[in-house]
């Protein structure tokens, strides 16, 4: 597995855990701000992951 593929896997795992943290924050009532922040982070990482995948196709083999 190349660094590119492992990076995409890492970003995928980070998205899952970020969303999980958001759910944890909402469900336990720890902090609504943290909940929304985690969900936004998950979305941003998803956007980054898609952008990285598209751009890296042309520059990293």
């Amino acid at each position: 597995m190349s660094l590119k593929a492992f990076h995409l896997f890492f970003i995928l795992v980070s998205i899952v855990f970020s969303a999980g943290m958001g759910i944890w924050a909402f469900k336990t009532g720890a902090s609504d701000g943290l909940g929304w922040g985690s969900c936004v982070a998950a979305v941003l990482m998803l956007v980054y992951g898609v952008m990285f995948f598209n751009k890296s196709k042309s520059i990293i083999t």
């Binding site: 890492f10 795992v13 855990f17 943290m21 944890w24």
Partner: peptide, 24 residues
């Protein structure tokens, strides 16, 4: 690339360490 693969693994470990020790 090799060093980056190691670094990603180390970061991945932290992604598991953080929720089990800090949140749950």
């Amino acid at each position: 690339e090799i060093a980056g693969l190691f670094w990603h693994f180390v970061d991945l470990v932290w992604i598991f360490v953080f929720p089990i020790f800090y949140l749950l």
